[in-house]
Design a protein around this nucleic acid. Structure first.
Lengths: 219, 219
DNA sequence: TCAAAAGTGTTTCTCGTACACCCATGT
DNA sequence: ACATGGGTGTACGAGAAACACTTTTGA
């Protein structure tokens, strides 16, 4: 039993995934999702959170209650690992861009790097180990569907965020540009639904300073 | 590693779940989801489908390509089974009402029976074994969310079905009555989206005979 | 003064909801 | 004839989409 993690962030307006380069066979030199074995007395969520910490060193995230983590599914094809029977429970994690620079500081993270999700799909599956292409597809599908139905988008923006930052996340995941005026109205509606609130201060931009908003956790 | 199954159907306009009564400790006498161990060379979906067959004897379902089966998630609390560490991958399955009468014919199914989902929730968790209340909750949540986004509703109606039969499924899962006129319009829209087609014949009802429709698999 | 992005407004269309009503059939 | 449920029509409102426009800043 292992857990594998699809750790996403939005950098430079594009969706990125954290991958590690494998040092040993099988698939030496190939890219793979970070992951590891579940310990004997560990819950699956616990194991995923521990791996996330080990791979990213992001202890600091606990101040926001930790990064968003959600299970994607179990993958158990008998031949998915040539060495032995391994069943993996995959989760996806969302890292806000403010914390991305801290990741290199982590322990196992020396060999970890961000790759563009768009590039992964163009290169097809060539450089990816095991059944990880399949896992990534499932994680992406889940990510996109959760985007419209849950509040996961807020896990990918800085804590007080501008409307543009939030829109950028939606565009990166959805893959298509969104009309800024219309998106603004969606955000305003979230405000009088009590889901968001205006925060103090302004964010400097290339032009007119932007209002800041904050996600209000449901009571 | 085990698979557990939440097998649903709609009987008498209400959502039902197939449960077995446990014969041995732990939880002897309690109700539990059907399930079993994953075999060494079996994929998880394969194991789930095999268990479904063993528990229901519904070989006949293959004529419609088998019942709908989808993974819900993995459950791995270290103490979920007092005997040993067991991680279970839960799936839900949907059985159309036409096949329900055949289920008693199955092998392991002698001790299986349908219970009202509504009753399960009223009785809280008292009579359910292991963490099965949690699994059932997750399966229900998934069922409800898939209902609006996928075509799973068609797996719970007879093959040519009436609009009322389809509406009944939505009402049973959603738990609330739906305006018949409005629901009809939704169905008509599905028809000119090419998702449904009018089938020949009529279904006898307590009043005016109803048109029959058929689900058209996406090409 | 000009570019860039924030923010506002307008119009059109689709869809969900509520609800009134007609139609065909078995009893 | 009448209850039952199939099937149709209307009216309102929320929200998605397309797009023009004004405002405020930095360069």
């Amino acid at each position: 039993m292992t857990v594998d993690l699809a750790i996403f962030t939005v950098l430079d307006r594009l969706l990125h995934l954290l991958v590690v380069e494998r040092g040993e066979p099988p698939f030496a030199g190939a890219l793979a999702l970070p992951g590891g074995f579940v310990r004997p007395n560990e819950d699956l969520d616990e194991a995923a959170r521990r791996e996330l910490l080990e791979e990213t060193g992001l202890a600091a995230m606990t101040e926001r209650g930790g990064p968003h983590l959600a299970q994607v599914g179990a993958f158990g094809r008998p031949d998915r690992d040539p060495r032995m029977r391994v069943i993996s429970v995959a989760s996806f994690a969302l890292v806000p861009p403010e914390l991305v620079p801290q990741i290199r500081a982590g322990g196992d993270a020396a060999h970890a790097r961000w790759v563009l999700v768009r590039d992964l799909r163009e290169l097809s599956e060539s450089p990816l180990a095991f059944d990880h292409p399949e896992i990534i597809d499932a994680a992406l599908t889940r990510l996109r569907s959760d985007l419209d139905q849950t509040s996961i988008a807020f896990a990918l923006v800085p804590d007080p965020f501008t409307i543009q930052e939030l829109r950028t996340v939606h565009e990166a995941i959805g893959g298509a540009p969104i009309d800024p005026g219309n998106f603004r109205k969606r955000v305003l509606r979230m405000i009088d639904d009590g889901m968001l609130e205006l925060a103090r201060g302004k964010r400097q931009t290339a032009s007119k300073p932007a209002n800041l908003y904050r996600f209000v956790a449901p009571r």
